Simulated scan of single mutants.
Amino acid sequence: MKLPILTIVVPCYNEEEVFEETYKQLKEILRDLIDEKYVSNTSKLLFVNDGSKDSTWEKITQAYLQDDSVHGIKLARNFGHQKALLAGLEDAVTYSDCVISIDADLQDDVQVIKEFVIKYLEGYDVVYGVRDSRETDTAFKRSTALGFYRLMDKLGLPLVNNHADYRLLSKRALEALLQFKETHLFLRGIVPLVGFKSTKVYYDRKERLAGESKYPLKKMLSFAFDGITSFSIKPIRLITVLGFSASFISLLAAIYVLYQKFATDTVSGWASVMISIWFIGGLLLMSIGLIGEYIGKIYEEVKQRPRYIVEESLFHESKVDQYMKQKVFE
């Protein structure tokens, strides 16, 4: 049986402090998989530099020069984690039988990569890496993350709870994923839409080895909101419900005011008027803002700008030649 060609895709942004250890650990895992005959000896590591401002690209280049299994892609600027990951996936699909994506910070347990490959060999097209617990998170991050998954479930979005972007995709699953052409990427929401046979591998998430998180609170909230508005129109429907509710409340208030006017001859209070104005005004502004968010997404989608631009690629041509020869004789 022909061994599958595996590519491990690693998006990197300002990872100079952790890159060498990341490369070392992933290289060891890849070597073990090759030695144990789980994957082909043409399997590789693909590092995607997402416009880093430090020496990350220089370190990727150094690894490439000393190791034939290392490939590198340098994006022209910082396009964001999801688009950097997509750049690696689109490159890897041309010469890989299966692809594993993992972040460079080593918080995801690299030791379960072997389990990913075993599940793939058992016939699974998608293998999700799922956190066994969130004990390493702060109480705030843990509660907000769980709240986000509950909200997404209420909105009918098929997310895998406690899964980020640590996963394995077979070639056909990856080809199906790349048919989704939206500009605003939320890959953990798109992958379940692909279908195919899937399973989960559980692991304990570690503390970041070095450097700082690339997802502060502001980015996390933006990412979550992007995921909600990219996959559901229920927030728009919620506005409609709020509008009808506000109208109903206003009708009750009108009945109350008329009763006060004709039955008790009292003048309506200033407080009730101001509360009504602020309530309706806030509801309108929120509604306009949410509708504007959807319109803005439509505006960016219809322009069809490239999702990323590659400035430089580091690629060992011998690997490609060897892969193409295998395909010819199959």
Results as ranks from 00 to 15, higher is better:
203 Y>P: 12
330 E>C: 03
182 E>K: 15
128 Y>S: 09
116 F>P: 02
302 V>R: 05
216 P>A: 09
324 M>D: 04
241 V>D: 03
112 V>S: 07
76 A>M: 10
66 Q>R: 12
232 S>C: 00
25 Q>F: 02
270 W>T: 10
195 G>S: 05
322 Q>G: 08
288 I>M: 11
161 N>S: 09
266 T>L: 07
79 F>H: 04
90 E>C: 08
43 S>Y: 05
62 Q>D: 14
95 Y>G: 04
207 E>H: 07
312 E>Y: 12
300 E>K: 13
90 E>D: 01
167 R>E: 02
181 K>R: 13
53 K>F: 07
150 R>M: 02
5 I>G: 00
69 S>A: 11
123 G>A: 08
295 I>H: 06
14 N>K: 14
283 L>A: 11
180 F>W: 05
170 S>W: 06
143 S>N: 15
24 K>T: 02
281 G>Q: 00
187 L>C: 12
58 E>G: 13
296 G>Y: 15
232 S>F: 04
309 I>C: 00
15 E>G: 00
49 N>D: 08
327 K>R: 14
91 D>G: 02
281 G>L: 09
274 M>A: 14
11 P>R: 08
280 I>K: 11
161 N>R: 15
19 F>T: 02
17 E>G: 06
81 H>G: 01
277 I>Q: 04
23 Y>L: 02
293 E>D: 04
165 D>L: 15
320 V>R: 15
238 L>N: 09
159 L>A: 11
93 V>I: 15
132 D>A: 15
220 M>S: 14
101 S>Q: 10
290 L>F: 09
239 I>Q: 02
243 G>H: 12
171 K>C: 13
298 I>Q: 00
80 G>V: 08
132 D>S: 14
20 E>D: 15
247 S>C: 09
89 L>G: 10
127 V>M: 08
261 K>I: 11
96 S>Y: 03
178 L>H: 00
117 V>E: 05
135 E>A: 15
311 E>V: 03
307 R>Q: 14
299 Y>C: 01
179 Q>W: 02
90 E>A: 14
125 D>L: 04
202 Y>W: 11
209 L>C: 03
44 K>L: 06
308 Y>P: 02
181 K>N: 11
187 L>M: 15
277 I>L: 15
101 S>D: 10
242 L>W: 14
165 D>K: 04
288 I>A: 13
318 S>P: 00
